[in-house]
Computed example of a mutant assay.
Amino acid sequence: MLTVEVIRAGQVLGWSIKDIAARDTKHREQVNPPARAVAILRGQLEEIEAKAAELNWMRAQLRDKLDWIEQGAHGAQPGFGQYGCRVAAPVSV
């Protein structure tokens, strides 16, 4: 049976319950040699680091937007471009 911690960690990474269960089953059924275990853990670490980078980007954008609003929303509003995101200019309706 999966523990709550395993399920929660998988959900944070964006994995479905089916993916979490499959990974857990594979882990429990196999005795991984150290080299294989290291490869698996490195892959999981890369996924977590990518998610962390996305969250840091989102946090910076939200903080700047909040500061802009709290200071009266004067001047140009913070845009995604200043965070390295290449998006088209907003379309006026």
Rank of each mutant, 00 (worst) to 15 (best):
L66G: 03
E49R: 13
E49Y: 09
V31S: 05
A89Q: 04
T3D: 10
G14R: 05
I7T: 09
K51H: 08
E47Y: 05
V91M: 08
L13E: 07
A21L: 10
W68V: 04
A88T: 08
E49I: 06
G14F: 04
V31P: 00
V38I: 14
I17T: 09
V91F: 12
V87H: 07
H27G: 11
P33E: 08
I69V: 14
G81A: 06
D24R: 04
W57Y: 05
A60C: 03
Q44D: 13
I17Y: 09
C85T: 12
E5W: 07
I17C: 01
K26Q: 12
G84P: 02
A37F: 04
G14W: 02
A60I: 06
Q30E: 14
W57Q: 13
I40N: 06
G72F: 03
V12Y: 14
P34R: 03
A88W: 10
P78W: 07
M58V: 04
E70I: 06
A39N: 03
I7H: 08
K18Y: 06
A50M: 09
H74F: 10
Q61I: 12
R23V: 04
L62K: 14
I48Q: 04
A53W: 00
R8F: 10
G84H: 01
A50D: 05
L2I: 13
A89P: 07
G84N: 03
V93R: 15
K65A: 12
T25R: 14
N32S: 09
V91C: 01
I7N: 01
T25V: 12
G43T: 09
G75P: 05
W57A: 12
Q71A: 15
P33Q: 07
A37I: 03
E54S: 08
L66Y: 14
W57V: 01
F80S: 14
Q11F: 12
G81T: 07
R42N: 07
W57S: 13
E54G: 09
I7A: 03
Y83I: 04
G14P: 00
E49P: 02
G84F: 01
A37E: 02
D64E: 15
G10A: 03
A37K: 06
E5Q: 13
A60S: 12
A9M: 10
F80C: 15
M58E: 13
M58Y: 10
G14Y: 04
R36V: 12
A22K: 13
P34C: 02
A35W: 03
V87M: 09
Q82N: 02
Q30F: 12
G75A: 06
K51E: 00
R23S: 10
W57D: 11
V87W: 06
W68G: 01
A73C: 03
G84E: 03
Q30M: 09
G14S: 04
V38C: 04
Q11M: 11
Y83T: 01
P33G: 00
A89S: 07
V87I: 12
L45D: 01
D67V: 08
V87A: 15
W57G: 14
H27A: 13
A53M: 02
A50W: 07
W15Y: 10
L55T: 04
Q30H: 11
V93D: 06
L41M: 08
Q82V: 10
L66R: 15
G72P: 00
W15P: 00
V38R: 15
W57M: 10
A39M: 09
D19G: 03
